[in-house]
Design a binder for these strands. Structure first.
Lengths: 229, 229
DNA sequence: TTCGACTTGTAAGTGTCTTGTAAGTCTCGC
DNA sequence: GCGAGACTTACAAGACACTTACAAGTCGAA
């Protein structure tokens, strides 16, 4: 789950984003409307979090622009208590929820999960492939019916594969989904990670395998289905 | 048990909430309809307590909105003696019980317990897992058939686990269930608490164990059932 | 009201798991 | 056979969880 957090108050942005990362989200922080639009066009986000008091443009001005390029992606607006009118306007302009500043981070997390759980959202779905099942709501994994312990990153990687099983996923796409732009890792990191996931899958008797396409990326495959291996 | 207490009279709110906390409830107090809706969306409450004389909106206006987002959660209305009509309207609009001001806190507590005991409510249920049994009505715990003494917080934590045995519970969820938003504790508090509960469970021969999922949360497990340990 | 026992959160130290880096090996395709 | 890309292994830093000790707060009994 990757979020774009549009907030110009540096201190607030730092604190909040740290908590969100702890909660398992990949978070990009931008401080201006320009950067926000740019990032929104460049990466796939699952949720936008928009603070309304931006320096270079009115936040509500930005909202329709974001919605235009990412019509499906939910937007959560943060606004000060006295800006009640803005809140109404925001909901009309296409935001999916709002939050009154100051807010507790747990509250923000609750809202994010809520919008993701809505019909068509990324949460509340059970991803199944081969004998592997991933419950997106509570992030639990079962292989052949037994619960399995994967670390946070390992789960995140496997989730990407399960969401696009049997479709080719480029290394770039994986990197974008797993790492925010502040924490870019060496290309090797993804290789090491896939190695760990492969090992765990194999050790625990999963019927699915991660195949490499040299120079292109990876594909998730069900080896039982077509009698391989 | 977490309550949202919607009351604009600060002094009354302070007194009542203190008594409710003493009685073992986690209590959030808000003074306006806006804050109430906001909190109701952000956290899981077991009961709402709604005072009808709010400054920014008619309390009865608020009731259906709360009921819409939390259809299962009971609502107890507090109203002045002369507002009899309101009481009738309240019950029609979806409140589960009402209380005439001024009221004794003991009465409020009795009403809360009463609505929680109704079919589908959180009380009146016996939670059993492994050789551990928790009687929600009188909050008594038995391990392997013998009564066991757990402190209030320890019981509250164990109750959360018993209510969702074998399902993953995030640290955030635990924090939300155990602490109201005024009394946020350090993350370590939950770790210390689980440590104490684990110790007591082990010392008293419980067959259940609290397992940690690093970076995610905890799960309650019955170690006898699947022949572990 | 005072005292002691118990509860509960904080702080600090320790241990363990996770995760990225680095470096070496392997393998595929030319 | 060569080189780029992928795989594997080992390691270290950091994050996270566990444990213990302590202090403040709470509660009940004398």
């Amino acid at each position: 789950m990757r979020l774009l957090y549009i907030e110009d108050n540096e201190k607030l942005a730092l604190n909040t984003s740290a908590s969100l990362r702890k909660a398992g989200f990949v978070v990009d922080v931008v401080a201006t409307a320009g950067d926000a639009l740019h990032a929104a066009k460049s990466f796939d986000y699952d949720v936008f979090i928009l603070d309304l008091g931006l320096p270079d443009r009115d936040g509500l001005d930005l909202l329709p622009q974001i919605k235009q390029s990412n019509p499906q992606t939910p937007v959560i607006i943060c606004t000060a208590r006295d800006a009640l009118e803005d809140r109404i306007k925001g909901l009309n302009t296409g935001s999916d929820d709002y939050l009154i500043k100051p807010f507790a981070v747990t509250e923000l997390i609750a809202r994010i999960n809520a919008v993701l759980r809505r019909p068509g959202g990324a949460l509340g779905v059970t991803l199944t492939f081969g004998n592997v099942t991933f419950e997106t709501t509570d992030r639990t994994l079962t292989i052949g019916g037994v619960a399995s312990a994967f670390s946070k990153r390992e789960l995140a990687l496997l989730e990407i594969f399960l969401r696009r099983s049997e479709r080719v996923i480029t290394k770039d796409a994986i990197e974008n989904a797993l790492y925010s732009f502040d924490e870019a890792a060496t290309p090797n990191a993804i290789e090491v990670l896939t190695h760990r996931v492969r090992k765990k899958l194999a050790d625990q008797g999963a019927t699915i395998e991660i195949h490499n396409l040299r120079g292109i990326g990876y594909v998730l495959h069900d080896c039982k289905k077509d009698g391989e291996t």
